[in-house]
């Protein structure tokens, strides 16, 4: 059987500043992954709608667009006080939220592959609010190993001597990609234990990778990535789209981190971003 080999991109999470970075993101990803198929899932907080996303992706190959409620993300549902799940006293919501998004898109991806005789080589995962720039493209010939089992994310932090993945932005080979998308059904953090939060979210992802034989390539490759664009960055970014200064963005990121909820809400309102994209605590 001969299949068409392509790459695909998952863009998932709260939309946040998506409306200000979307042109850059789509063009960067389209060029980097050679006209990939896009799978998009964003939270239904009001910043974007399915119609607005369809308009955003009208010039590229977009297979699936979903705008879903964040209430259904975690196993066993969420307690009314948003403190965690009904099953555990502590609960790693951030970990499960993205795991659920990836799983929903994985179903769409596999359905499309089966229906169209496509096999994806790499899947790029990004969140919507990144100011993307290109990384080092994986060179298949240089890797000398099973490219379908690799991932661009780091899994071990030598400084702290601990399992720790960088973030939820990475590229993965075909098998790694499927396995990563199935962490939503992983039993290790859920079955037979009273309390989930024994390690951090990033460590959870890293340990999952080890347990599933997802490997880090000998020759490191990067993938498109970049700094967050926070609402308080937008004005500066709009005035310096081609010559923005990373140090200035870092400074404003720190400013955002220590900003009170009221001031954050001011920036969200100013730029038509739903405050729920930032302030929900589920």
């Amino acid at each position: 059987m001969v299949y068409n080999n392509k790459n695909c991109v998952f863009i998932r999470g709260a939309a946040r500043t998506w409306n200000y970075v979307k042109q850059n993101s789509i063009s960067q990803l389209n060029a980097y992954w050679n006209n990939p198929d896009f799978y998009v899932l964003m939270t239904d907080n009001g910043t974007v709608t399915e119609e607005s996303l369809q308009q955003d992706f009208k010039d590229v190959n977009c297979v699936s667009i979903k705008v879903i409620s964040h209430n259904n993300i975690v196993p066993f549902g969420i307690e009314s006080n948003n403190a965690g799940s009904q099953q555990w006293t502590d609960f790693s919501t951030n970990y499960w939220r993205v795991a659920w998004y990836d799983y929903v898109l994985e179903c769409e991806k596999r359905k499309y592959q089966l229906e169209h005789d496509i096999r994806y080589n790499f899947t790029q995962y990004i969140r919507p609010d990144l100011l993307l720039s290109s990384g080092n493209k994986p060179e298949v010939e240089d890797l000398y190993q099973d490219i379908h089992g690799i991932i661009s994310d780091g899994v071990y932090n030598e400084d702290s001597d601990s399992f720790n993945s960088n973030d939820i932005v990475y590229a993965a080979g075909s098998r790694s990609s499927i396995l990563m998308n199935y962490r939503y059904f992983d039993t290790y953090y859920t079955d037979g234990i009273p309390n989930q939060v024994v390690i951090g979210d990033h460590a959870k992802i890293a340990e999952y990778m080890f347990r599933n034989f997802i490997t880090y390539p000998r020759k490191q490759f990067g993938s498109p990535g970049g700094p967050f664009l926070r609402p308080n960055h937008i004005e500066y970014y709009l005035n310096h789209q081609t010559d923005y200064d990373m140090a200035e963005l870092d400074r404003m990121t720190t400013e955002w981190r220590f900003m009170g909820d009221e001031q954050k809400q001011y920036y969200c309102d100013l730029f038509n971003i739903s405050k729920l994209d930032f302030l929900y605590k589920v």
Binding site: M1, Q113, D146, H148, S174, R175, I178
Partner: peptide, 21 residues
């Protein structure tokens, strides 16, 4: 069910794995 669906999904990549290994 969790084991079955994960295993079935990963079967899709077996063709390639077999070809390369």
């Amino acid at each position: 069910p969790r084991s079955i669906i994960k295993w079935a999904a990963c079967s899709l990549t077996l063709e390639r794995l077999v070809a390369s290994c």
